[in-house]
Simulated assay, not measured.
Amino acid sequence: MIKTLYSLTCLFLLSSSYLLAQPTLKKLWQTDHLDVPESVLIGQDQRTLYVSLIGPGDHTIADGNGAIAQIDRQGKIINKDWITGLNAPKGLGEYEDKLYVADLKELVIIDIPNKKIIEKITVPEVGMLNDVTVDPAGDVLISDSKGGKIYRYKQGKVEVFLPNLVNPNGLLAVGNGLYFLDSGSLFYLDKNKIATKIATGMEKSTDGLQKDGDNFLVSAWIGVLYYINKDGKVTTLLDSRAEKMNTADFSFDPESRLLYLPTFFKNQVIAYQVQ
């Protein structure tokens, strides 16, 4: 009897510990209207949030309606038109005072201190550039969702880095490796370009990707936010499909445990506490 009670107690403690390891979301604030926010990036100054705005119109057409906005960490809009004249900007990455933007078929480079575009690099034969990440060496990786590739911008040149994918989107460079999302699955690519599948079974529109220690946060544009344990177990943190709220390319601060979520057609950025 004592042995049985001990076993049950251990099982309860293990189960409780496992349940506590699965975080929950608490909504903190939402911004005023922003024109189709697609991606949020926490600036390296840790005070500013950069938000890519696709703007009114067709988000697949080069129409000049896109912009980059700045908001603060409390959700106050600092400048909706910090950078204008873009087309349908999506993923963002920052390195040494430069902001890199995936803008349909161009990689746009912005001088942050001087608030101006310094270069637009057209990527030949591209389908649609989507997410951006910058590795520790300053190489910029850009996903091409419609073209099924990942490109690399290095020393002033753009080249195919990883071909033959299905619908790559979210990218996260860590050390010498790269985590990436492709059509409902999460992969890790090592320095020898050997890909290992970490998790699968998510909605095909997987979009944003962030790490939480050894675990991961993943969004699917259709309206789902997932938490993935390091063993590949996928749980749902948020499902907003019924209310037609998209969950696009979010940003996450592991220290404050704040998650900043762009809602695309709902025209707001929402902040959540990950508890």
Score class of each variant (00 low, 15 high):
residue 6 Y to D: 07
residue 10 C to A: 14
residue 17 S to N: 11
residue 23 P to S: 09
residue 24 T to A: 14
residue 30 Q to T: 10
residue 31 T to S: 13
residue 36 V to Q: 10
residue 42 I to S: 01
residue 43 G to Q: 04
residue 43 G to I: 08
residue 45 D to Y: 08
residue 46 Q to N: 12
residue 51 V to W: 09
residue 59 H to A: 03
residue 61 I to L: 13
residue 62 A to F: 04
residue 67 A to G: 01
residue 68 I to K: 08
residue 70 Q to S: 00
residue 73 R to A: 03
residue 75 G to Y: 01
residue 81 D to F: 10
residue 84 T to L: 10
residue 85 G to E: 05
residue 90 K to V: 00
residue 96 E to F: 13
residue 101 V to D: 09
residue 105 K to A: 11
residue 106 E to Y: 06
residue 107 L to A: 00
residue 108 V to E: 07
residue 111 D to A: 03
residue 112 I to Q: 12
residue 112 I to A: 09
residue 115 K to W: 02
residue 115 K to M: 04
residue 115 K to S: 09
residue 124 P to D: 05
residue 125 E to I: 04
residue 131 D to T: 10
residue 133 T to F: 08
residue 135 D to A: 03
residue 136 P to D: 09
residue 137 A to D: 12
residue 139 D to G: 05
residue 143 S to D: 07
residue 144 D to N: 07
residue 146 K to N: 12
residue 155 Q to H: 11
residue 155 Q to S: 13
residue 158 V to P: 05
residue 158 V to S: 05
residue 159 E to A: 14
residue 167 N to I: 06
residue 169 N to I: 11
residue 171 L to Y: 11
residue 173 A to M: 02
residue 187 F to A: 02
residue 187 F to C: 04
residue 191 K to R: 13
residue 194 I to P: 00
residue 199 A to F: 09
residue 199 A to Q: 09
residue 202 M to P: 04
residue 203 E to P: 02
residue 204 K to P: 03
residue 207 D to C: 05
residue 208 G to W: 15
residue 221 W to M: 03
residue 228 I to N: 10
residue 228 I to H: 00
residue 230 K to F: 11
residue 231 D to C: 07
residue 241 R to I: 08
residue 242 A to V: 15
residue 243 E to G: 11
residue 243 E to V: 15
residue 250 F to E: 03
residue 251 S to H: 06
residue 253 D to I: 08
residue 259 L to A: 15
residue 260 Y to N: 06
residue 263 T to F: 01
residue 266 K to G: 01
residue 274 V to R: 09
